[in-house]
Design a protein around this nucleic acid. Sequence first.
DNA 1: GCGGCTGTTTGCGATCGCGCAAAGTCATGG
DNA 2: CCATGACTTTGCGCGATCGCAAACAGCCGC
Lengths: 233, 233
Amino acid sequence: MPPLDRSLIAGLPAFAGLTGDQLDAILSPARSGRFARDAEIFGQDEEATAFHLLLSGHVRVVRTSPEGHQVIARYIAEGELFGIAMAMGRTTYPASAIAAADCVVLTWPNAAWPDLQARVPAFGASALQTIGTRLQETQATVMEMATEQVEQRIARAVLRLVQQSGRKTPDGIEIDFPITRQDIAEMTGTTLHTVSRLLSGWEQRGLVRGGRQKVTVVDPHALMLIAENRRKG
Amino acid sequence: MPPLDRSLIAGLPAFAGLTGDQLDAILSPARSGRFARDAEIFGQDEEATAFHLLLSGHVRVVRTSPEGHQVIARYIAEGELFGIAMAMGRTTYPASAIAAADCVVLTWPNAAWPDLQARVPAFGASALQTIGTRLQETQATVMEMATEQVEQRIARAVLRLVQQSGRKTPDGIEIDFPITRQDIAEMTGTTLHTVSRLLSGWEQRGLVRGGRQKVTVVDPHALMLIAENRRKG
DNA sequence: GCGGCTGTTTGCGATCGCGCAAAGTCATGG
DNA sequence: CCATGACTTTGCGCGATCGCAAACAGCCGC
């Protein structure tokens, strides 16, 4: 494996303020790998042998129920840790991680964790914070699913995607990795039919532009209004 | 404040295998407090100044949306940590904690965290694991809300409550703190009317026995069947 | 350039669960 | 012992969303 350069991670918020030595300590047990789109980085219920950081690309974290239903727990953006099941005492991954686009991933064997945490305490803190933030976000998702209409949830999901991975185009802001209606349905707990219908409606009203595996937001403000549109309560 | 005795926490799984000195180190910055039923232990969006451990009683963790909707994120059982927002870098509590029954709570000021973690590394690991487990559970909740019918979700919620806080009675296993239909609705993302209807139905079929702020499970196995009853997929 | 595949759109009927409304019923305090 | 309030039950109608089915459309490889 080639030696990894600290410039790979020096700019990441997770490692802000670390010394060069610390960066090297972090990188020395790491390996980097490439994953083509749709490749599985790790699978649900597989033995959790490593944890990961996404250098470039997009990763979809998917949970599959015993009945075969899939739910997209989240998309991982560049610079984020993922697959840190082991940090919380699990021996298997609770979800699968799929490359939503071509990816470059840093991987550490779990065995490196104690030493890393000892040598770079900020790394452990970063992991704790990552998990904590996700807990928050996941609970926010629960609230949405409990209290909001499908249209609001989809609006929120699209806005989140655009915010996380938006790319400006002449038409508006588009999500810069391929995403299907089915994917959006699996993020919001609905069906691709309903997503398609809603998006079509928005497109007719000029809020978004659709396309094959593509969504472009033309009028984010209008989407925000839809997301906030209270009904119950 | 009275000196706290290590026997308070010596038996808790979170502190298994610690020495007496470590237990004392953990307890020395802690204070204990009592909360009557329905008292607020901390409130959502309040400044997070402390973290807590439930010694006895039951605590309900509630999130309220800007529109005023309430969702019960979880019930805290005896021996569990809660309100550890600060560990993940937050300055305010993301939810309220209400005593669902009379409670005894240990409280540590946030300032004690770094020292504790240094002196008793297992304490930090315990916190990380607690958060990790909750993330798992919360994601499981998202899956349920995305893929299951209301009846299944209620069955699951009741089973979880019974498992966590069940008490045997001649009639069956009852939840050993007061819980309303409204509470169950807020756990499962539905309305108290629907919960009431479903529970009435179950009662007629002899699966449960209802009562004012009380649910007794007569036939857990049948409830499990309902919970697993696949429909979609 | 042409299948064939994958993803998208749309119609329609069924239904689950909600919202509203009103009537019980149990516990508590005066 | 009764009044009061909190909790629960139940009926009814409606609407959002699903499930099924079928037609369409962009993209890839041959």
